[in-house]
Design a protein around this nucleic acid. Structure first.
Lengths: 346, 346
DNA sequence: ACAAAAAATGTAACCGCTTACATTCAGTTT
DNA sequence: AAACTGAATGTAAGCGGTTACATTTTTTGT
C-alpha cells in the first residue's frame, strides 16, 4: 500500500495489504474471496472488514494469470449498427453480468476474414468462451477452438445436424413457414432479396426455406428471382427497384431481414405502388422497426432476448461444468401484419 | 512448450519457448514484439520467424500484469437495446480495433447506481480508459477516476463549462433550435415527453432548451406540460394519450428522443388524429427509425458515428500522451421531415 | 485425557510477461 | 592497440494474485 502505481496514481491496495490489515496470510485472503466456505466465520468477517476498509478490489490481470481464466466472455457479431443483434447482445451481457462475467465485443462486419481475426484476437485476450453468430466459418477455426478447449456457442441458428453447441432457431424451417403462407395467398411469382449467401449460412438457409416451400407447392424453385446485397435499407430499396423492373415482376418479395424489407417497402411506396395490394413484402427478425414501418411488416419473430440469455447460460454451463450445456432450439414464429395479402388477380 | 495447459488443452507456447527456439533471451523476444526499433535486424527476423513457426501469441493477462495496462477500453452505456447508442458504439469499437485495443461493454439501464457499479467493475477489470455517456454522476466517481488516473471521456453531451474531456453536442442548444422551429410554426401550447430529468443530464438539458425557446418567444416556460417516462415506444404512446386527454391539449409534442416520438406518433394515429395536421410531434437523435416511421419524423440529427470515433481517438490520445486530447463539440442539426407543420388554426 | 481425524491457516512456488540494470560486443577515438 | 563509446543483448526481479502442500489448531472418538 506504500507504493504508488506506475502512472503516478493513487496506491492501490493488494492482497498483501489486506492480509496485513487482517492479520492473516495472503492465501487466507484469497480463500475468503474465492471460496468463503472453507474459512472460519471469524476470519471471514475479519478479512471482509479489512477488504472494505481498504477499498480493496482484486487485480483481474493477476487473477487471470494465476488462475488461467479471465472471467471475460467474447462475442463476435456481424454488426452492432442496427437492432438485429443489439437486443440479443444486451440480454447476453445482462446474463453474464449477473454471473460476474464481463463482455468483450468485436464486430466482423459480416466478413469471414475479419471474423477469424477477431476470434484469434479475443482468445489471445483471454476470453474464456465465445459467442459466435451462425455456423459458417472455416473448419480451421473450429479446430483451433477445440484444441484450445475454448467453449463456444453458435447462436442465431440451430441445426441438429451440426456438431456445435448452439442456441437458436431453424432458419430454413422458419422461412419455409413464411413462404408457405405467402404461397397460400396465391402468389406464384416470387422474388427474394437476401444477404450474401456464400458466407452467411443463415441467409442461405432462409433462401433454402423459400425453395422448399415452392417445391412443396409445385412451383419451380428455379423461378425464384434472387438478389443478393448487403444488409442496409438503401440496398433493399435498390434491389426492389431492380426486381420490379424485370419483365415479369414478382407479386411478392420475400426479404432476408427486416432492414431489407423496410428498404423494399420504401422503394415500393416511392414508386407509387400500394402495399400489399400491388405487391406483398415480407421481412425477417421482427425488430422494432418492423411494427412501425409505414405499412406494418409481415415478418418472422426471432426470440432475440431469449437467445442471448440462453447462449450466456450455455457458455456458463460449459465453463462451470454443471449442468452440462445443451443446444437449444427456440421457436421463431410467424408475425403477420399488413404487408402480406392475396396476390393481385391476373 | 512441453507442458499442457490446465484445462487439458493443447500446450500454448510462451516467450520462453520462442526465446529458446530463436536462441535469444526472453527479454529480447519481448523487445522484438514491443519495440522492434531497439533490436538488430538480424535478431528481429530470427525471432519473428520463431514466433510464427510456433504460432506464438502473447498472453494478455501476463502482459497486462507486468506492464500495468490491459489495452482494453471500457464503455458504459445506458442501453444497447435500441439504435440510440448502437451506431456510436460500433464506430467506437472500430476505431479501437484499428488501434489494437479491445472494447469492454457494460450497460447501466439508465440507472446511476448500476452505472457506478459498472464503472468500478470495469476499472477493476483493468480497463485503461472509459467511455461514459453524459455528465450526470456522483462527484465521488469522478474523483475516483482522477485518483486512479484513468482517462475517461464523456460523450453524447458537450458543455464547455464542465471540466471533463468530452465529445458531443450541446443538447440544450440543439433542442432550443428545434423548439424555435416549432414555435415559429405558430405553436403556442407545447408539451414534452422526456426521460427522467433527475438523473439524466441530456434529458434535462433538452427540456431546458425548450424552455429557452419559449422564453425567447414570450411564452411562459411554466406552461410546458412535461411527462417524464422511460425510453420506450409504449411509454411514448401512453404519455401522448395522457397529454391529449388534458383540458387544453398541446398542438405540438416535443419528445426527448425518437423512440418516444415514434410511440407518440403511434398513439396519435391510433386515436385517429392526423399528423401533422392535428398535432405536431418531434423526436431527437435521428435514428434509422425516424425516417421510416408511418409519418417521417422531424427530429434532431445526432452525429453518432463521429462521436464514437472521436471519443475513441480522444481516449487513445489521453493514453498515448500525444497529441494531448481535447474536447470536441460536434454539430447536431435539425432534420425536418413530415411530423411538424403549422399549428392548426384556433 | 490422549491420539487420531478434520478443519483452518500459512508458506512459497508459480502463472507469462516486462523492464531496470548489468553485461557484452562492435565500432570510434586517440 | 588501448580506452572509450553506444548499441544490442542478457539477467533476474517483480507485477498481484492462486493453490499445492505443509503446518497448526480444533474437533472427535474412546
Amino acid at each position: 500500500m506504500d507504493k504508488t502505481d506506475k502512472t503516478g496514481g493513487v496506491p492501490v491496495p493488494t492482497v498483501a495489504d489486506v492480509a496485513a490489515a487482517a492479520g492473516v496470510s495472503t492465501a487466507t485472503v484469497s480463500r475468503c474471496l474465492n471460496s468463503p466456505g472453507v474459512v472460519s466465520e471469524k476470519t471471514l468477517k475479519k478479512v471482509l472488514e479489512a477488504v472494505d476498509r481498504l477499498g480493496y478490489a482484486p487485480n483481474f490481470s493477476a487473477r487471470a494469470l494465476a488462475s488461467n481464466r479471465t472471467n471475460m466472455i467474447g462475442a463476435i457479431i456481424p454488426t452492432m449498427e442496427n437492432a438485429i443483434f443489439a437486443r440479443g447482445l444486451q440480454a447476453f451481457q445482462e446474463e453474464l453480468q449477473k454471473n460476474g462475467r464481463t463482455l468483450l465485443v468485436a464486430s466482423s462486419s459480416y466478413r469471414s476474414d475479419l471474423e477469424e481475426e477477431q476470434i484469434r484476437a479475443l482468445t489471445a485476450r483471454g476470453a474464456d468462451a465465445l459467442l459466435l453468430i451462425g455456423y459458417h466459418r472455416d473448419s480451421r477455426l473450429y479446430e483451433f477452438l477445440e484444441k484450445r478447449r475454448i467453449p463456444y456457442v453458435v447462436a442465431w441458428a440451430y441445426d441438429p445436424a451440426k456438431p456445435h453447441l448452439s442456441v437458436g432457431f431453424n432458419n430454413r424451417a422458419a422461412m419455409r413457414q413464411l413462404a408457405d403462407e405467402v404461397i397460400g395467398k396465391g402468389h406464384r411469382k416470387l422474388a427474394c432479396i437476401s444477404a450474401d449467401t456464400a458466407e452467411n449460412d443463415r441467409a442461405r438457409e432462409r433462401v433454402n426455406g423459400i425453395r422448399d416451400a415452392m417445391e412443396a407447392a409445385g412451383l419451380d424453385p428455379a423461378s425464384l428471382d434472387i438478389i443478393e446485397t448487403s444488409y442496409a435499407i438503401d440496398a433493399g430499396d435498390a434491389a426492389f427497384r431492380a426486381l420490379v423492373g424485370a419483365k415479369t415482376p414478382p407479386t411478392a418479395v420475400i426479404c432476408g431481414n427486416d432492414v431489407l424489407a423496410v428498404g423494399a417497402l420504401r422503394a415500393a411506396l416511392a414508386l407509387g405502388m400500394n402495399v400489399p395490394e400491388d405487391v406483398s413484402i415480407t421481412g425477417f427478425d421482427n425488430i422494432e422497426l418492423a411494427g412501425l414501418a409505414p405499412v406494418p411488416l409481415t415478418t418472422v419473430h426471432v426470440p432475440h432476448r431469449r437467445m442471448g440469455q440462453f447462449a450466456a447460460q450455455a457458455l456458463l454451463a460449459a465453463l462451470g461444468g454443471t449442468p452440462p450445456p445443451h443446444s437449444t432450439e427456440l421457436p421463431a414464429e410467424l408475425c403477420l401484419r399488413a404487408t402480406l395479402a392475396r396476390a393481385p388477380a391476373g
